[in-house]
Amino acid sequence: EEEEKKKEEIARLLGVSKEDVERILKKNNLDIEQLLRRVQREN
């Protein structure tokens, strides 16, 4: 699934687990696209 791939990509870029990414998304109330763009910009 596309969303899972995005979570895995974010996890890889941040050096965290996919579960961490899911927690970040919930905690910050971000959607996956916003987080992915933010992470890609910083790297």
Rank of each mutant, 00 (worst) to 15 (best):
K18V: 13
K6L: 14
Q40A: 07
E3M: 14
K27G: 07
E4S: 07
L36R: 04
L30D: 04
N29T: 04
K27F: 13
E2I: 10
G15E: 03
K27Q: 13
D31E: 07
I24H: 03
S17R: 10
V16K: 05
K18L: 11
E9F: 15
E22V: 07
E33P: 02
E9P: 00
E19P: 05
E1S: 14
K6W: 11
K27H: 12
K18T: 09
V39T: 05
R37M: 08
R37T: 08
N43R: 12
I32Q: 01
E1N: 13
N28I: 10
K6S: 06
K18Y: 06
G15S: 05
L25Q: 02
Q34H: 06
R41K: 14
N29S: 08
E22S: 05
I10S: 01
S17Y: 03
R37N: 12
N43P: 09
G15D: 03
E33Y: 06
V39L: 15
E33K: 04
N29G: 13
R23E: 11
K5N: 10
S17C: 06
L25V: 05
I32K: 01
E2L: 10
K27M: 14
K7G: 01
L30N: 05
E4P: 02
E8G: 09
V39G: 02
D31M: 05
N28G: 11
D20A: 13
D31Q: 07
E8L: 15
A11Y: 01
N43K: 11
L14Q: 00
R37F: 04
I10T: 04
A11H: 01
I24A: 03
N28S: 14
K27A: 14
I32M: 05
L30H: 03
E1L: 14
R23C: 06
I24G: 01
E2M: 09
L35S: 00
E4K: 07
E22I: 07
N29L: 06
D20K: 08
E33W: 09
E4C: 08
K7W: 05
V39F: 04
E22P: 02
D31P: 04
E33H: 09
K26M: 13
E2P: 08
I24P: 00
E9T: 13
Q40G: 05
N29Y: 05
I10E: 00
E33T: 07
K27S: 12
L25N: 00
A11M: 08
R23T: 10
N29P: 03
A11N: 00
E4T: 08
L13C: 05
Q34D: 13
L14M: 11
L36F: 06
L35P: 00
L36C: 04
Q34S: 13
Q40E: 09
E4I: 07
V21E: 00
R41F: 09
V21H: 00
A11D: 00
R12S: 05
L13H: 05
E22T: 08
D20M: 15
L14E: 00
E19V: 09
Q34Y: 06
R37K: 13
R38E: 15
R38M: 15
G15P: 00
E22G: 04
V16T: 06
K27N: 13
R12A: 07
N29Q: 08
R23M: 13
K6C: 10
R12P: 00
R38I: 15
R12L: 07
E3D: 14
K5L: 12
G15N: 08
D31T: 15
L36T: 02
L25G: 01
E22R: 03
R41D: 13
K18C: 08
K27C: 13
V21F: 02
R37Y: 04
K18I: 12
D20H: 11
E4L: 08
S17W: 02
R12K: 09
L30M: 13
N28E: 15
I32V: 15
R41Q: 14
L30F: 08
R23K: 12
A11E: 01
E19C: 11
E2Y: 09
L35I: 03
N43I: 15
K7R: 06
K26F: 09
R38D: 15
Q34A: 13
Q34N: 07
D31A: 07
N43M: 15
K6M: 15
E42G: 09
E8F: 12
Q40C: 12
K26N: 07
K6F: 08
D31L: 05
S17L: 06
E8I: 11
I24K: 02
G15F: 03
K6P: 02
N28H: 15
I24L: 12
V39A: 14
E42L: 10
L14D: 00
R41L: 13
R12C: 11
E8N: 10
G15M: 05
N28P: 03
K26W: 08
K26L: 14
K27L: 15
K6N: 06
E1P: 12
R12H: 06
K7Q: 03
G15A: 04
R37P: 01
K7E: 02
K18R: 10
I10V: 14
N28R: 10
L36I: 04
L35T: 02
K5W: 14
Q40V: 08
E42Y: 06
L14R: 01
E19I: 10
E3I: 14
L35D: 00
K26D: 07
N29F: 07
L25D: 00
R37V: 08
E33A: 05
E33V: 04
R38T: 11
D20I: 14
G15T: 02
I10A: 09
E1M: 12
L30T: 05
L14F: 02
V21T: 01
E3F: 14
D31R: 06
I24W: 10
I24F: 09
E4A: 09
G15W: 03
A11R: 04
K7T: 04
E33I: 04
E19M: 11
E2H: 09
K26T: 10
I32N: 01
K27T: 13
E42N: 11
L14N: 00
I32R: 01
L36S: 02
K26Y: 09
L35K: 00
K5A: 14
E8S: 10
D31W: 03
R12E: 04
R12V: 05
I32D: 01
N28Y: 15
V39P: 02
E2Q: 10
V16M: 08
E2F: 07
